[in-house]
């Protein structure tokens, strides 16, 4: 294990003291998080720790109550999904949200079709979709004109991720992309996640699977009952420590101060 190093470069996305409540229930307590370009940040935490709320806040689905979101070092106001999309933040949800009756190209361009006059520009869309998939070295799709209903789970995940890449997004948030996949398909998706970071994207990777996290992530951020227990390079922690952070909110010197950890129910 190497000595913690100062992070190179500025974070593309930074959260400072973000609070979020639903009615009387406060779900996020002063969340600080840094997401770097070219790096995979694993976001881990037990069920109900606030992972989903956190990404939905970033995506603008649940606008934040307090704190600050900085994009590229500048404070931004994200009050709807369009705001986050305009900044270049794409979220790939667990249920993927693809239309089964449309083909790969049609899904990748859904809602943002290229047109010539009032006509859809199919040729240019097909080319762009294929270029994007080729750039990500996707070798598992037979044709970009296949209907999505004929794709396997891993292929669907690939299409959903490629869709996010197509829009030159700077931050790609993946919500448990390997949760429903078999061994071989998980392999495909993890390779894709790595390539995503290698092509300069900032990737937030939500997962319950420690093997996946340690394989693909550069940094790990652990949420415990709505608080960030740790946001550190993955080389500074080992698996038992991360599991401790997830289940108890602290591990050794890392994590939430004991008083606070015990204070939260």
């Amino acid at each position: 294990m190497s000595v913690p190093q100062p992070e190179d470069g500025t974070p593309i996305l930074e959260l400072r003291g973000v609070d979020k409540s639903f009615g009387a229930i406060q779900v996020l307590h002063g969340v600080d998080l840094k997401v770097y370009p070219g790096k995979v940040t694993a976001l881990v935490g037990d069920n109900g720790a606030g992972k989903s709320t956190l990404i939905k806040s970033i995506a603008g689905i649940h606008p934040i109550d307090g704190g600050q979101i900085l994009f590229d070092g500048k404070p931004v106001d994200i009050s709807g999904p369009r705001d986050s999309a305009a900044l270049g933040i794409e979220v790939v949800y667990q249920d993927l949200a693809l239309a089964d009756n449309l083909d790969v190209v049609q899904n990748m361009f859904l809602g943002r079709e290229r047109k010539r006059g009032i006509l859809l520009d199919e040729a240019s869309m097909e080319q762009a979709a294929r270029d994007t998939l080729a750039k990500l070295s996707v070798r598992t799709l037979k044709s970009v004109r296949q209907l999505v209903s004929s794709l396997s789970g891993g292929q669907r995940q690939t299409v959903a991720i490629a869709k996010a890449v197509l829009w030159e997004s700077k931050v790609v948030i993946l919500d448990e992309p390997t949760a429903a996949l078999g061994v071989a398909q998980t392999r495909q998706v993890l390779d894709l996640v790595r390539r995503l970071a290698d092509t300069g994207h900032a990737v937030v990777f939500i997962s319950h699977n420690m093997v996946d996290v340690f394989e693909v992530a550069d940094r790990v951020a652990a949420l415990y009952l709505g608080r960030v227990a740790a946001d550190v390079p993955i080389s500074t922690v080992d698996r038992p420590q991360v599991i401790e952070l997830i289940t108890a909110g602290r591990s050794g010197d890392l994590g939430i101060a004991p008083a606070v950890a015990e204070g939260v129910i």
């Binding site: 949800y93 949200a97 089964d100 009756n101 049609q106 859904l110 809602g111 943002r112 047109k115």
Partner: peptide, 20 residues
């Protein structure tokens, strides 16, 4: 694109909504 969106809404209305 209107026609494309009709198919999309029929195939998966939630996906269409999230696609804006």
């Amino acid at each position: 694109s209107f026609g494309r969106h009709v198919y999309a809404v029929g195939g998966n209305a939630e996906a269409a909504r999230r696609a804006g």
